[in-house]
Measured scan of single mutants.
Amino acid sequence: IGSLMYASIFGNVSAIIQRLYSGTARYHTQMLRVREFIRFHQIPNPLRQRLEEYFQHAWSYTNGIDMNAVLKGFPECLQADICLHLNRSLLQHCKPFRGATKGCLRALAMKFKTTHAPPGDTLVHAGDLLTALYFISRGSIEILRGDVVVAILGKNDIFGEPLNLYARPGKSNGDVRALTYCDLHKIHRDDLLEVLDMYPEFSDHFWSSLEITFNLRDTNMIPGSPGSTELEGGFSRQRKRKLSFRRRTDKDTEQPGEVSALGPGRAGAGPSSRGRPGGPWGESPSSGPSSPESSEDEGPGRSSSPLRLVPFSSPRPPGEPPGGEPLMEDCEKSSDTCNPLSGAFSGVSNIFSFWGDSRGRQYQELPRCPAPTPSLLNIPLSSPGRRPRGDVESRLDALQRQLNRLETRLSADMATVLQLLQRQMTLVPPAYSAVTTPGPGPTSTSPLLPVSPLPTLTLDSLSQVSQFMACEELPPGAPELPQEGPTRRLSLPGQLGALTSQPLHRHGSDPG
């Protein structure tokens, strides 16, 4: 009997000691992992102490058991019943959930998450997105703005933001810190809205009876308010094209079509300037034949640059190039080494500058006005007194259609001029006259002087055409309008007829 009692007592005591040691061994194993994590990542002392304290409290609170892992091991129907039991206190005593059906309560219970916070733990920081609604079931918390405590909340209090009033989550206007050990039930806004969409009859009752104890939403960050730039940057990543407008005076608003859609830094370009900076079609017209890549860069430059609305530039004389043409100036200075066709295309550029300027006046029909002061630039669209967005969009579309028509007509005119030049060069190729044979009589004449090349004649003739079109064909006081194609086609051969009437002889060394 004594040996039996000794064996039973010894066996029970050893089993008890073994169970104690097993729990202690698990605790030390998990604690060792936490300390190894702290050492590996070199976490500083204040945060390291918070980690160790939280682990110790969580171990004593749950005995080292992962409740979520245990809950996920059950089937979904059983999980709903378990969640309904775990959140029964909240669902029974909170006013917004009263009167809900059994199915609605089960769906809500599945969406709730339980959070346990030790003292000093910050649940929400200032500036964080308010993605959830919090219900306090135990403990107390404090809300701070800077170093000032603005509120202390306790059991059955609710904090967050009214989700039904805002389409997008706002930002917190303060820090939420736990004063004691707290148990909180939180539900994400997407989950709550999903359940309320499934039960629309409960939705009206819920929003009407929901009383948020403390609204954390920062009202200064609401979209459309003066301080909402940061919020707009976070939620409006896919922005449309940006529009900046110059201020319109009362006198300017009476004149229709007073602005032109141009790229940034293009205030001095012609009315047909689009795409790359520098001139019509993204580059100076005089350098068009020598740089074919300008047409390839036109599309990307047009689509990537934001639109700006600026006044037209001052008018340019008909014979003056659009500006920024070092290529043609070098050719004029060193005409001995340049291609003979460069002079002809220089005359073509003069005609283009004249036609572009006159067509700009035809479509816009307003006098040039000086540029406004820099303080009046970049007025935002949302400022008071601005035109409605639809009106601005319609004006932009009208300007775009005008620019497209202008570009089409300029292309047709350019093709006409090039065809005339090619026809003239085919009839009378460039050549130098040879020395004529002296006559049989004693009164022999001296050799004839060489005839100037055709490109120079073409430049003079085209300059005469531009001056003739600019000065004589337009009646005084009438708006400057571009001439039609047949009129220009008839004027060019008439001007060139006198020049080509002389018999030109080919030089023996000319390969053409």
Rank of each mutant, 00 (worst) to 15 (best):
D190F: 04
R359V: 08
S225F: 10
S208F: 09
L399A: 04
F214D: 01
G323N: 13
S209G: 10
P300F: 04
L216W: 03
D204R: 10
N215Q: 01
D191R: 02
L427V: 09
A415M: 11
Y432G: 10
P200A: 05
I379A: 08
E230K: 08
L184G: 02
L210H: 03
P289F: 04
G288K: 12
S501P: 11
R387H: 15
Q255I: 12
G265E: 09
F245A: 10
T373I: 09
A269T: 08
E332Y: 07
D413N: 07
L129V: 06
T437W: 08
S236I: 13
L492V: 09
F135R: 02
F202R: 02
A261Q: 09
Q495M: 04
V465N: 15
V195W: 05
L184C: 10
P311R: 10
P271C: 09
L243Y: 14
G347W: 04
P292T: 06
S353G: 09
P493S: 05
P271K: 03
S433I: 12
S208G: 13
K171M: 08
P430Y: 15
G288Q: 08
S225L: 12
D250M: 06
E254I: 12
Y432F: 13
E254V: 09
Y181R: 04
N378D: 01
T445K: 14
G160R: 02
E365I: 08
Q400V: 11
S349E: 10
T213Q: 03
D297T: 05
V392C: 09
L193E: 10
P162R: 10
L262K: 12
R401T: 05
R247K: 08
S342E: 13
D510S: 11
L418F: 07
S137K: 08
T456P: 08
F345M: 12
G323T: 14
G497C: 05
T416L: 07
N220W: 10
P311L: 04
L196M: 08
P453Y: 12
S466F: 03
P292M: 03
Y181Q: 06
M198Y: 10
N220C: 13
W207L: 12
L309K: 11
P372N: 12
R409G: 08
I351Q: 08
N404L: 11
N220Y: 13
A261Y: 12
L474Q: 07
N173P: 02
T456D: 06
R386H: 11
P285R: 11
L504C: 06
R145E: 11
Q400T: 04
G508Q: 12
G508H: 08
T219V: 14
P271Q: 15
D413F: 03
Y363C: 10
G282C: 01
N378L: 03
A132D: 12
N215Y: 01
P374E: 08
M198N: 06
P388Y: 14
L179V: 10
P479Y: 14
K155C: 08
L459T: 12
S314V: 08
P223I: 10
E407W: 04
P300A: 08
R368V: 09
P169M: 05
E472Q: 07
L396N: 06
L403R: 03
Q502H: 05
L179E: 02
D183I: 05
S463R: 13
V417P: 04
A267I: 08
G299Q: 04
R308L: 07
P374V: 09
F235C: 08
Y363R: 11
T180C: 05
S411K: 12
E480I: 01
G323Y: 01
F235N: 11
M198K: 10
S291T: 15
Y166K: 13
D330R: 07
P289V: 10
V148A: 10
N350R: 12
L418E: 03
A269K: 07
G234H: 12
R308N: 01
E232T: 12
Q464I: 07
S444T: 12
S209Q: 10
G127Q: 03
E258A: 08
L243H: 07
P370F: 08
D183A: 10
D330L: 14
S208A: 10
P384V: 12
L327Y: 05
I152F: 03
S228D: 14
A267C: 12
E320G: 08
L231G: 09
I222C: 10
P429W: 09
R189H: 08
S137F: 04
P322D: 04
L216H: 01
P285S: 08
D413H: 08
P430M: 13
P271Y: 07
L454K: 06
Q419E: 08
M425H: 14
S287L: 01
V392E: 13
Q495D: 14
R145V: 06
Q402K: 03
L210T: 06
D397W: 13
L216K: 01
G347L: 05
Q238F: 14
G160D: 01
G268C: 12
A267G: 12
F206I: 03
G299Y: 15
G265T: 11
A434Y: 10
P271V: 13
A269H: 10
L243D: 09
Q402G: 07
S314M: 13
A470Y: 15
R247A: 08
Q364E: 09
L153E: 01
L381T: 09
G477R: 13
T500K: 06
Q483G: 11
F159P: 01
G224M: 11
P511V: 09
P285W: 15
G227V: 10
P318Q: 15
E332K: 12
L133M: 07
R274D: 15
P321E: 10
N215S: 06
R409H: 05
H185N: 09
P169G: 03
S291D: 11
P311Q: 09
F354M: 05
V259A: 14
R239V: 11
S209D: 14
D190N: 12
V417A: 07
S314F: 14
G494Q: 14
G227E: 06
T253S: 13
K242Y: 10
Q424A: 05
D510L: 12
L462G: 11
M221H: 11
P340A: 13
S433G: 11
R386N: 15
V465R: 11
R359G: 12
T416A: 12
S461V: 05
S287E: 12
P370R: 08
M425F: 07
R361C: 08
P326T: 01
S501E: 07
N378I: 01
A261R: 09
I351V: 09
R177F: 02
R138A: 10
V451T: 15
I212Y: 03
L309Y: 10
F206W: 12
R217E: 02
M414Q: 05
I158L: 07
P429N: 09
C369W: 09
Q419F: 13
P450T: 09
P511G: 09
D197Q: 09
T416G: 07
V417L: 09
R246S: 10
D183C: 08
L144N: 07
S382I: 13
P256K: 08
Q255R: 12
V148T: 13
H185G: 06
L309P: 10
C182A: 06
R217Y: 02
D197K: 13
F159A: 03
F312L: 14
T229Y: 11
F235A: 12
R247W: 13
S444I: 11
D190R: 07
L366R: 07
L309E: 13
L153Y: 01
Q419P: 03
S335H: 11
F312E: 07
T180M: 03
L376Q: 11
P370A: 08
D157H: 06
